[in-house]
Amino acid sequence: MGVTQILFWFLSVMAVFSALMVITSKNPVYSVLWLIATFFAISGHYILFNAQFLAIVNIIVYAGAIMVLFLFVIMLMNLNRETEPQKNRWLKMAGAAAGGCLLLVLVAALKDTDMKQQQALINKGNIGLIKILGKELFTTYVVPFEISSVLFLSAMIGAVVIGKKE
């Protein structure tokens, strides 16, 4: 077991554990924090892949912006363990069972694929570096890139429309 393996398992366990904590924490603030931990674990995976750009964007966008907004909202709403609504137990179990089934089915379906022989390149390969991604983004993917600006614009207008007091 090399360093990479150790890191992989560490990050994986961290990701899954934090994700589980997200959905089991009673206190929404804890959920947010665990989710951030998950994001960091995933970023760690990206770094293992040498996808540095995505790793840092993941942190900036998700951990730095999105989750801050979540935290904002939750803190302002003052939701804590006492006021946090809970589904009844059976519904919860049903939901968990459904999710578990999905997991099982997907895993079972994908277990026997030829993917077993496929290796994901770790630590090597420079496609994750900003130079290559940037070039690709502004040549091949320039149309979707511009389109996403429209998306942002509409989201912006949306936030104004919804948020502005009348």
Binding site: V22, I23, P28, E84, L91, G95, A96, A98, G99, G100
Partner: peptide, 14 residues
Amino acid sequence: SIGIVGVLTRRNAI
């Protein structure tokens, strides 16, 4: 799947 379970089991919209 954990995400899906969360969606199914939690009641808090956030």
